[in-house]
Write a protein that binds this DNA or RNA. Structure first.
Lengths: 100, 100
DNA sequence: AATGTAACTTTGTTTTGCAAAGTGCTTTTA
DNA sequence: TAAAAGCACTTTGCAAAACAAAGTTACATT
């Protein structure tokens, strides 16, 4: 007897990482600063969440200079998109229960 | 600029409590043992999650004897149902983004 | 008397989450 | 040109959370 929630990805339990991923699903490349401001996170906090997502190869990092300032941008990988979509599928199943 | 995820309830970040609540939304009264088996949790683990939900008055506990055996059952309170539905509403908003 | 079942509580370890401060590099401002 | 500021971290440190494992209480069965 396996419950729906066993199909949820633990990495996406965190509402912070849920927010990060949902932004990366909508916009191809997103700046560190933009993520930080949208989600209201401290630098360190955001950096550590990104590291976790990177460790699972769910996101890709690009570091470049714009003008002469460093700029870090992130994008979801195919693997990340798949994992996140699977997670959302499971959430959708959960939501279906309350309709009927 | 507030992101959708700020509307999520932190208590329901945990996929375990998400599972517990979704079971309590569907069935009025659910036994400790049933929750435990459905979600694949240890006694202690489940008990501590239930305590957290109880502390927020999201669930109600009923202890009785069936035959002469003790039996604990749980139900979601009106407050709990409201909070959970609000959480699910926020998740639904999140899911809407990927349709378009 | 010994074993079993239900529902915990306690203990302890590991993992998170997050804030605060510090770092390295570069650019802007006084 | 020295100081301040911006970007993206890393490090430190702490408090809360997750969870397993073992112990507890109370009754029931064998």
């Amino acid at each position: 007897m396996k419950h729906i929630t066993t199909k949820l990805n633990k990495l996406f339990d965190s509402h912070t990482r849920l927010g990060i991923m949902s932004l990366l699903m909508v916009h191809e490349w997103v700046e560190f600063k933009v993520l930080k401001e949208n989600l209201g996170l401290s630098d360190g906090n955001l950096a550590s969440h990104m590291k976790k997502l990177e460790a699972s190869e769910f996101i890709e990092v690009r570091k470049e200079f714009v003008g002469r300032k460093p700029q870090t941008t992130y994008a979801a990988t195919a693997l990340g998109r798949k994992a996140f979509n699977d997670h959302l599928d499971a959430l959708e199943d959960l939501l279906k229960q309350r309709k009927k």
